[in-house]
Design a protein around this nucleic acid. Structure first.
Lengths: 119, 119
DNA sequence: CTGCATCCAACGGGATACTG
DNA sequence: CAGTATCCCGTTGGATGCAG
């Protein structure tokens, strides 16, 4: 069998861009237009300021998020998905569909597996 | 804005199933038929026995992988994707496409971002 | 051949406090 | 408002050795 890592490489790259605990949340929250820092903080339940900042920086670095600073007082910063990220967001819909079709099966499989182990 | 976590939930679930460092590799390696433990170990470059085992168990628990033991000497174990996992594997193709279309842009964005930071 | 057990290092991520 | 700085801990994953 061929080296599978090389074959799967582009796939793992995508995953890495969104694999953080909060990346998907930001992606979804910013999908329908520009969002401000505090809006994100409220929309993404449980995220800390620190993690929000880190996630935003990472997504910005990857070219998925566009950061616009308005030099006002108090400061105002808006985050927008890039075209690339919009496309990704739509692509991810098929994954959501898969998840919704099979989440029941998965839960059942896990339950069954755990029951068998405990014996 | 609504609670985004809830909305993105099924999506993060899928990611979790595949987010391990090696899960995708196993998924791809097993996509074209049953594979044995040692085959996987060789196909997935750099994986340790420990991590291979852990990854296999996790995928099996999630109902993505089917484990068949042949009670021979020496032992022989085959891993096969379940129908659900096959479906997932095909769904992931669209992600691969996205990655291949944009990996250049992403690399450029990162380079640009890093250059701007270093000033 | 196919694992499991143990030890250990690195990293992600939470809590908290401070700032332009 | 939109961050940055520190500290700290749990989890992930690598290395190695043993076993059915």
């Amino acid at each position: 069998m061929r080296d599978v890592i090389e074959e799967a490489c582009p796939l793992t790259e995508v995953i890495d861009h969104v694999a953080g605990k909060w990346s998907i949340g930001v992606l979804v929250a910013a999908a329908h237009g520009p969002v401000r820092f505090t809006e994100l903080e409220r929309a993404i339940n449980g995220i800390s300021r620190r993690m929000l900042t880190l996630t935003l920086r990472k997504l910005e670095r990857d070219g998925l998020l566009c950061r616009t600073v308005y030099p006002t007082v108090p400061p105002k910063v808006e985050y927008t998905l890039t075209a690339m990220a919009q496309e990704l967001h739509e692509t991810l819909r098929s994954l959501t569909d898969w998840a919704e079709r099979h989440r029941g099966n998965i839960a059942a499989a896990q339950k069954h597996y755990d029951a068998a182990e405990r014996q």
